[in-house]
Computed example of a mutant assay.
Amino acid sequence: MKRTLVAIGVFVVLLGVAIWYFSNIFIYLTISLVLATVLRPMTSQIIRFEVFGGKVPRYIAIFGSYAVVIGVLALFLVLFIPLISNQLEVLASLDFSAVFDSLVQPVRWVETFLINNRLSDGPSGFMVDSVRKGVVDFIHTMDFTEILNQLISFTGNFFIGVLAVGFITFFLLYENGILRRQVIAVIPNKYFEVFISALYKIERLLSNFLLGILFQMISIFSIAAVGLSIVGVNYALTIAVFAAIANLIPYLGPLLGGIFGIAVAVSTSGDFTFNNDTLILVAKVFTVFAVVQATDNLLLQPLIFSKSVKAHPLEIFVIIFVGATIAGIPGMIGAIPVYTVLRVSSTEIYAGFNQYRVFKIKS
């Protein structure tokens, strides 16, 4: 038994080192597995169609599924094109001096308060000048060449990743279940029952989790779109789409969605002054996203995370922050699926000791 435990421990360590060293490949494979899981029902449905008295070839069905995904992404991009065009027009006609003066108005109020109450002996305008100097110094310290190089590098890596994920996903769909069969083939017979039990539970929980995430995104989009439309915010659907996608990032996503919504609402209103109308507009958007956040925290997250992966909310909270510490935002997104796999695997191994007796060999 000790020898078996040592072997399992060594395998886990080597697997962890391999995942860390080949992190890019692991990320591509993980994304491909998720996409293959999502696209498999659609691909199977397309194959059932009869064309000229025969079934659709599997590779044609896969390309059809790809076409649907590309079409959905194109629709999302179409929503953002008018917003981007509007922002470019706003920037082209913007009086930056007037905008700066309006943005530093609260600083002027603080400065006036300090001087009138003799809390500061600085000259009039000293705080505004400090803010202006800080902004100018920040712009001067920016290396735009380096930013451009990083943007080009990111673009190249992004397209390489898209091609890699598309290629891997295609073969996962074309050779239906090939990865599962290959893994099962190398499992010794005495561990077969434990492994199949663990694999079944992992697939079921992850499938429930993915369906829950899809339901969460649709719910966030619907609530945000309806709420923003009711309060009269421009580009409500675009903001709602961004909020739904950003919500994939636990805890931080709703904040990003709210900031984006307020920024779009203010910038498209054409009024950059701190007047009552701007404050009311910000309050409307804030109220909508407060409702979105409350619904997500009180209803959607407990239903999706706790019920789908069978874990306590506090447990989920800790795991997400562990993922954030290890890998930042990608770690937060992938923390729950990875934890689900590890937890179910360890539970089934423990059950193997107590029930199946497959591990009880002479040490």
Score class of each variant (00 low, 15 high):
L148K: 11
A244Y: 01
W20A: 13
S44N: 14
V341D: 11
G134R: 00
D296R: 06
P330L: 05
A98T: 10
V6H: 08
Y28C: 09
I336K: 04
L342F: 11
I187Q: 01
V104S: 02
D277H: 08
I115A: 00
T268Y: 08
K362A: 15
S219N: 09
S93L: 08
V99N: 02
A244V: 01
V291A: 13
K55N: 15
I184C: 11
V186P: 13
T238Q: 10
L79C: 04
A74G: 13
V6T: 11
Y191E: 03
T141Y: 14
V38M: 06
V318H: 02
L33R: 03
F26N: 03
I280R: 01
R118W: 12
V13I: 15
F76Y: 13
A351V: 06
V226R: 04
V99A: 09
S130D: 03
F159M: 07
G331W: 11
I220R: 14
T268Q: 04
Q216L: 12
D143S: 07
F154C: 03
F286G: 06
L299C: 12
E315C: 04
N149S: 15
D296Q: 12
L77Q: 10
V136H: 08
S120M: 11
N297G: 12
N117C: 10
I160G: 04
N24C: 03
I47F: 08
V128I: 01
M42L: 15
P57W: 02
I336F: 10
V186D: 07
L163S: 06
W20I: 12
S267L: 09
F159E: 04
I70D: 00
D121N: 14
L281V: 05
V12T: 09
L256W: 05
E175N: 14
F22C: 08
F215L: 13
G257P: 13
V135M: 01
A185P: 08
N117V: 11
I160S: 11
R343N: 07
T112L: 13
A240K: 08
V309E: 00
Q150V: 10
I160A: 12
G212M: 00
V186K: 12
N234Q: 14
P302Y: 03
G71N: 02
F321Y: 11
P82A: 07
W20C: 07
L237Q: 09
T347Y: 08
L14H: 06
T340H: 02
G54H: 13
L5H: 06
F274H: 00
Y235F: 15
F317E: 05
V104P: 00
G134M: 04
A98K: 05
G257N: 04
S153W: 07
N247S: 15
V38A: 13
N276L: 15
M142V: 15
S32C: 01
A224R: 01
M42A: 10
